[in-house]
């Protein structure tokens, strides 16, 4: 079973990464995570929005309303602060993921701090 604390930052990384390519709305983000992760990571449909609101409040995302086919959607994009945050957390995640892989492969010289 995954530790909630250990994985709590995963949605943030995934969202920042996906939005760094192009602006998206909530439904698109959930679908993209499902497709890109080949359904290995399934984000709750409705619970993606509190994460988006928090990231926006922290200045990592920018939201704008956009009318599309008679409907008004809220699109999100990454800010400069969001891009910097993505670089930081992606680097941390890569180090942790490699450390975990080395342990699983039976390595003994692991120095990463989680």
């Amino acid at each position: 079973m995954a530790s909630p604390g250990f994985l709590s930052g995963v949605p943030e990384i995934l969202i920042l990464r996906l939005l760094s390519d192009r602006e998206m709305y909530g439904y698109e983000i959930v679908r993209a995570i499902d497709v890109e992760s080949e359904s290995a990571i399934v984000l709750g449909e409705g619970v993606v929005y509190p994460i988006l609101h928090t990231l926006e409040q922290r200045g990592l995302l920018k939201a704008r309303r956009k009318p599309v086919n008679g409907r008004t959607r809220v699109y999100y994009t990454v800010t400069r602060a969001g891009s910097e945050r993505l670089r930081d957390v992606a680097g941390q995640w890569t180090r942790i993921a490699s450390a975990v892989s080395r342990i699983l492969d039976g390595g003994s010289d692991v120095k990463a701090t989680v």
Partner: peptide, 16 residues
């Protein structure tokens, strides 16, 4: 936040 959350949920429901 509440107003936008509800609006987004409605749109999401529509897509689903």
């Amino acid at each position: 936040h509440v107003r936008r959350y509800v609006r987004e949920l409605r749109e999401h429901y529509h897509d689903l």
